Computed example of a mutant assay.
Amino acid sequence: MTAARAALAGAIADLAALDTRGTGIEDLLALVIDSEHATRTLTGLGQTWLHRSVNAGAFTDTGLTCADALSGLLHIDLPDARTRLRRSMLLTDQTTLTGDPLPARMPGTAAA
């Protein structure tokens, strides 16, 4: 886990350090496409990780609602935190109270 997180941070730092002022249009557009793909992929993964964190009780000891705790953790406004929590519930597999698995409510979007 630590190595993967460090590799991600390193890759982002490498990209941020690029001097693209003299880069050709094709390479610039490739960077735009790659960054969009990475953003979408990380957003989807983040939804899964957020949902698992909430289910594991990440915010239960804070004395706050999940949305309030997430807002503080990520330094985002409360409506955005609520949206992220709702989205995480739509895009990830659920479990019934009896432990039976339920598929994501939006499986096509979740798969994308």
Results as ranks from 00 to 15, higher is better:
Arg52Pro: 01
Ala58Thr: 11
Ala67Gln: 06
Thr83His: 14
Gly108Tyr: 03
Ile12Ser: 02
Arg5Ile: 03
Thr109Glu: 13
Thr41Met: 11
Leu102His: 10
Arg40Thr: 03
Ala6Tyr: 01
Asp93Glu: 12
Ser71Pro: 00
Ala111Pro: 11
Asp100Lys: 11
Ala3Tyr: 03
His37Glu: 04
Arg52Asp: 07
Val32Cys: 14
Ala104Gly: 02
Ile25Ala: 15
Gly10Tyr: 00
Ala111Lys: 11
Ala11Lys: 00
Ala3Asn: 05
Arg84Thr: 12
Leu50Arg: 10
Ile25Phe: 15
Asp93His: 11
Thr43Cys: 08
Thr83Cys: 06
Pro79Gly: 03
Arg5Asp: 01
Val54Trp: 03
Ile76Gly: 04
His51Phe: 07
His51Ser: 09
Thr92Cys: 10
Thr60His: 11
Thr20Cys: 12
Leu90Phe: 06
Asp68Ser: 08
Met106Arg: 13
Leu64Ala: 06
Leu74Asp: 03
Thr41Glu: 04
Thr48Lys: 13
Trp49Leu: 14
Leu15Trp: 11
Met1Asn: 02
Ser35Phe: 14
Gly63Cys: 07
Thr23Asp: 08
Pro101Ala: 05
Ala3His: 06
Ala3Gln: 09
Leu78Ser: 02
Ile25Asp: 15
Leu28Ser: 14
Pro103Arg: 08
Asp61Met: 08
Glu36Lys: 12
Leu28Gly: 14
Met106Glu: 11
Pro79Ile: 00
Gly108Ser: 03
Thr48His: 11
Leu64Arg: 10
Gly24Arg: 13
Ala112Arg: 13
Ile12Gly: 00
Thr83Tyr: 14
Leu28Asn: 15
Ile12Tyr: 04
Thr109Ala: 15
Gln47Ala: 09
Ala30His: 12
Gly22Gln: 07
Gly108His: 07
Arg5Gly: 00
Pro107Leu: 06
Thr92Leu: 01
Thr48Leu: 13
Asp14Pro: 01
Gly22Phe: 03
Ala112Trp: 14
Thr62Arg: 04
Leu97Lys: 13
Asp61Lys: 10
Ser53Cys: 08
Gly108Arg: 08
Ala58Met: 11
Ala38Val: 10
Ala13Gln: 08
Leu91His: 01
Thr20Asp: 12
Leu15Glu: 12
Ile12His: 05
Thr62Asn: 03
Ile76Ser: 03
Ala11Met: 01
Ala58Phe: 07
Gly108Lys: 04
Gly24Asp: 15
Arg21Tyr: 04
Thr60Phe: 07
Arg52Phe: 02
Gly57Pro: 09
Ile76Met: 06
Glu26Ser: 15
His51Trp: 07
Ala58Gln: 12
Asp93Ala: 14
Thr109Trp: 07
Thr109Gly: 05
Leu28Glu: 15
Met106Pro: 01
Gly22Lys: 05
Thr83Met: 07
Gly99Tyr: 09
Arg82Thr: 13
Ala67Arg: 02
Ala69Ser: 01
Met89Ser: 10
Asn55Thr: 09
Thr62Met: 06
Ala11His: 01
Thr43Leu: 13
Leu97Pro: 07
Ala111Tyr: 05
Ser88Val: 10
